[in-house]
Amino acid sequence: MSACSRLTSSSSIYVAGHRGLVGSAICRALTQAGCTNLLTRSRAELDLTDQAAVRGFFTEARPEFVFLAAAKVGGIHANNSSPADFIRDNLLIQTNIIDAAWRSGVKKLLFLGSSCIYPKFAPQPMKEEHLLSGTLEPTNEWYAVAKIAGIKLCQAYRQQHGFDAISLMPTNLYGPHDNFDLHSSHVLSALIRKFHEAKLNQLPEVEIWGSGTPKREFLHVDDLASACLFLMDKYSGGEIINVGSGQEVTIAELAALVKEIVGFRGGLRYNTAMPDGTPRKLLDVTKLTALGWQSKISLRDGIAATYQWFLDHEQQARL
């Protein structure tokens, strides 16, 4: 492990994807840490799939540090419906930013992958060394392949050029600025919206996709942002680092918890014609805890805070 480049309050920091779930949380954490020189560009201002535009931005702005949180993301339905979009856009975004960052002399880059990079039937909990040890989950393999390519790109630029690029693998995320669109969202935000609308419309029941038996781990996005800042300062190596809570719940348990927090009084109906996805997905966070970080926000508290954010921002919650 090489010596780390440290963030300071005056460091020039580019957060790619600053309006998204993860990017906005990283911006909040950086601001709270006293960092005042944040560089952000909206999609309208900078098309990250355009290599020339990305190189031009880096040449002009010259950021010292980069948090690569920009990605095309979505749940099972979105991945199944638009596989070409998911693999193409993510490959382009990652490649353009990582290459331009190295070319422009960026001190350090943090790349955010996903727990879906691991094989469908990986041993549980999933260790970093389980990467590429088996077949991927078919419902999100396009996104997973792109993210694996991003990891390998970081490792290759480190090996060939000495570029300080690190890769974090977060578990399932949720929190403020999440996507609540029922066609493209992940399970937790979809459940919040479903139960909220069922409560408003006094529906007798809510449909839950799948059997309810798969197990999932969830991490509040503010916890992830905390880990990102921690690892940007403390870690410099080619090996990927898992970031999670270390705890899991079944989808049925999650649905019951969201139902209680939202205050829906009807029943639940499981649609077993819809895919379950990976049966279990829990990250081994031994490496991260050994470095000195662990999550702080409980699932109940995190869901309650996210629901309150949803209520306060319904018009902008990607409805």
Results as ranks from 00 to 15, higher is better:
Cys35Trp: 09
Val66Phe: 00
Thr36Asn: 15
Thr8Ser: 12
Ala101Lys: 00
Arg6Ser: 13
Leu21Glu: 03
Ile93Lys: 08
Ser81Phe: 02
Ser42Arg: 08
Cys4Phe: 05
Lys120Asp: 06
Leu109Ala: 06
Glu128Asn: 01
Phe65Ser: 11
Lys107Ala: 04
Ala16Gly: 09
Ala29Glu: 14
Val73Asn: 13
Met126Arg: 12
Arg28His: 15
Leu109Gln: 07
Ala78Asp: 14
Pro63Cys: 07
Thr49Gly: 09
Ile13Gln: 02
Leu21Gly: 01
Leu91Asp: 14
His77Val: 06
Ala61Gly: 06
Lys108Ser: 08
Ser42Glu: 05
Asn90Pro: 13
Leu68Asn: 01
Ala101Leu: 00
Val73His: 11
Gly20Arg: 04
Ile98Met: 14
Thr8Arg: 12
Gly56Met: 06
Leu48Arg: 02
Ile98Gln: 14
Glu128Leu: 03
Arg41Thr: 05
Gly34Leu: 07
Lys107Trp: 12
Ser82Arg: 13
Val66Pro: 00
Arg103Trp: 00
Met126Tyr: 06
Asp50Phe: 09
Gln94Glu: 15
Phe111Gln: 01
Ser42Gln: 11
Phe111Arg: 00
Val73Arg: 08
Asp50Leu: 04
Thr31Ile: 05
Gly17Asn: 04
Phe57Pro: 00
Val15Met: 01
Phe67Gly: 09
His77Ile: 11
Val54Asn: 05
Ala84Phe: 14
Glu60Ala: 14
Ala122Cys: 07
Thr40Cys: 14
Ala52Pro: 02
Gly34Asp: 05
Ser24Phe: 08
Lys107Asp: 09
Val106Asp: 04
Ala16Cys: 10
Ser12Pro: 04
Leu39Gly: 00
Thr40Tyr: 05
Val73Cys: 08
Asp99Val: 12
Ile87Tyr: 08
Ala84Gln: 09
Thr40Asp: 01
Glu129Arg: 11
Ile13Asp: 06
Leu46Tyr: 04
Lys72Cys: 12
Ser114Ile: 07
Asp85Met: 11
Thr59Gln: 12
Ile117Ser: 05
Gly75Lys: 13
Glu129Ala: 09
Ala69His: 05
Asp47Trp: 02
Val106Gly: 08
Gly20Asp: 07
Ser82Leu: 14
Thr59Val: 10
Asn90Ser: 07
Gly105Arg: 10
Ala122His: 01
Ser104Asp: 05
Arg6Gln: 13
Gly17Ile: 02
Leu38Phe: 04
Phe58Lys: 03
Gly74Pro: 04
Ala100Asp: 06
Phe65His: 14
His77Arg: 11
Leu68Cys: 09
Pro123Lys: 07
Phe121Trp: 08
Asn90Tyr: 12
Ser42Asp: 08
Asn80Arg: 12
Ile76Lys: 00
Gly34Trp: 01
Leu48Phe: 02
Asn96Arg: 15
Ser115Ile: 05
Arg6Glu: 08
Lys120Phe: 04
Pro125His: 13
Thr40Ile: 13
Gly75Ser: 14
Leu68Asp: 06
Ala101Glu: 00
Gln32His: 12
Glu45Tyr: 01
Leu39Ile: 03
Leu112Pro: 04
Ser82Asp: 09
Gly20Lys: 02
Ala44Glu: 15
Pro125Arg: 15
Ser42Cys: 04
Ala69Trp: 00
Arg6Pro: 06
Phe111Leu: 07
Asp89Met: 14
Cys4Glu: 11
Ala44Ile: 05
Ser114Arg: 01
Gly17Pro: 01
Ala16Lys: 03
Cys35Phe: 10
Ala25His: 10
Leu92Ser: 12
Ala25Tyr: 10
Glu129Leu: 07
